Amino acid sequence: MRMAEQEDACKSGANTSRASSLLRCLKSLVEAVTGPWTWRNLGGWLGIIAAILFIKGCVVDQYTIPSGSMEPTLTGDPRFFRGDRVLVNKWLFGPRIPFTTARLWKWGGPRRWDIVVFRAVDPNAEHPILIKRVVGLPGEQVRINEGKIVINGEVVAPPEPLEDVLAYTDEVTLDALEQKKQLLFLAKKNQPLPSLNPQHPQVKTLYAEMQRLHDAVRDVTLDELNDEDVEALCNDVNPVALQLLDGFFSLVRPQMRYGVSDAPEFSVIPEDHYFLLGDNSAHSLDGRMYGWVPHNHLYGRAFAVWWPWSRRQDFTGFSQTWWGRTLLYGLPLSFVGLEFFLALRRKSRV
């Protein structure tokens, strides 16, 4: 009995020893990154985290373009590192409390034609963070007429570089590719659509196509498909299904009233609010549907595209100013120089 107890004790001790050794090894690996576990070091890391949160929340941050509503100015693609990444000046409109719409101070507002990042006014929006162009300012009367923006009864032309880009419409349509994308999303769910009569011949055709495509897209992340993939999957889809789908979405999409109706509540922008539209007007869910955006929802002004490198852009001309060049070149060189100086200092102490 005693020998068995001694063997169990030995095994338990060996297991405890291995566990302790593993914990020491893990701690060593973590300390190689974080440094020693001291109160002073903890304070340093808390300071770094606070600085990062302050910079991202109040000074500058980067955002990904999730959709094609701002094309051709900005390319949207939810796939990893495919869509444009924009840099946003959050200090311009006043610092906010991070992760909220509460602004500590209001220092100014955007100008017409600025591109801004903001929190959606609809709490149930598919994309909670959006990017659009400022078209109407507080107190103005705005109207979209034959592709042009009419402010207080007068046509306001966009800046010359944007004249061939911006043409606003009072209706949203689905092009052929977008119809096929929507069909794939419906096929993935493969559920009946509300307000459609399942006994109607065209509806039966649509449901048959959804059923046929369901197995092909059931386990596919549809947002990662490119245009060629969509075309290949929908190569032999019955045109009747796509036609019916376009009619269905025209019934269920949000009503377009703001900037379209002459009624004061839909044409006069309240104080401290803005009218924001997508550059890809015919395929953009924007202020025409969800209305005016309050100032405290504005995160900041987009001033550059930093990725992909082949599409890099400077929207505000900051890269031609002394402070812009300082941010782009001076700060990185300063960090490199500081690291070089510290390395020499450490070497001289050895």
Score class of each variant (00 low, 15 high):
residue 138 P to G: 07
residue 140 E to Q: 15
residue 140 E to H: 06
residue 141 Q to G: 00
residue 143 R to Q: 15
residue 143 R to V: 00
residue 144 I to E: 06
residue 146 E to M: 07
residue 147 G to Q: 07
residue 147 G to A: 10
residue 149 I to Q: 09
residue 152 N to W: 02
residue 153 G to Q: 09
residue 153 G to K: 03
residue 153 G to I: 00
residue 154 E to M: 09
residue 155 V to I: 15
residue 156 V to C: 10
residue 156 V to A: 14
residue 158 P to T: 03
residue 158 P to S: 10
residue 159 P to F: 10
residue 159 P to V: 09
residue 161 P to D: 14
residue 163 E to V: 11
residue 166 L to C: 05
residue 167 A to R: 13
residue 170 D to F: 00
residue 170 D to I: 11
residue 171 E to S: 05
residue 171 E to L: 01
residue 172 V to A: 12
residue 173 T to F: 12
residue 175 D to L: 02
residue 175 D to I: 02
residue 177 L to R: 04
residue 178 E to P: 00
residue 178 E to L: 11
residue 180 K to R: 15
residue 181 K to F: 04
residue 185 F to W: 13
residue 185 F to R: 15
residue 187 A to H: 04
residue 187 A to Y: 12
residue 189 K to S: 13
residue 191 Q to H: 09
residue 191 Q to L: 15
residue 192 P to Y: 09
residue 193 L to E: 05
residue 194 P to F: 13
residue 200 H to W: 11
residue 202 Q to M: 09
residue 202 Q to V: 06
residue 202 Q to T: 08
residue 202 Q to A: 14
residue 203 V to S: 08
residue 207 Y to F: 14
residue 207 Y to A: 04
residue 209 E to I: 04
residue 209 E to D: 07
residue 210 M to A: 04
residue 212 R to T: 11
residue 213 L to F: 11
residue 213 L to C: 10
residue 213 L to A: 07
residue 218 R to D: 12
residue 219 D to Q: 13
residue 220 V to N: 06
residue 224 E to C: 02
residue 226 N to R: 01
residue 226 N to I: 02
residue 228 E to H: 05
residue 229 D to T: 01
residue 233 L to K: 04
residue 233 L to I: 08
residue 233 L to Q: 08
residue 235 N to S: 14
residue 236 D to Y: 08
residue 238 N to L: 08
residue 239 P to C: 10
residue 240 V to C: 09
residue 240 V to N: 13
residue 241 A to K: 02
residue 241 A to Q: 11
residue 243 Q to L: 13
residue 243 Q to V: 00
residue 243 Q to E: 15
residue 245 L to T: 01
residue 245 L to M: 12
residue 245 L to P: 08
residue 250 S to E: 15
residue 254 P to D: 13
residue 256 M to K: 01
residue 256 M to S: 10
residue 258 Y to M: 05
residue 259 G to T: 01
residue 261 S to P: 05
residue 264 P to I: 03
residue 265 E to Q: 14
residue 265 E to M: 06
residue 267 S to L: 11
residue 267 S to F: 12
residue 269 I to W: 02
residue 269 I to F: 03
residue 269 I to A: 06
residue 269 I to P: 05
residue 271 E to Y: 00
residue 273 H to V: 00
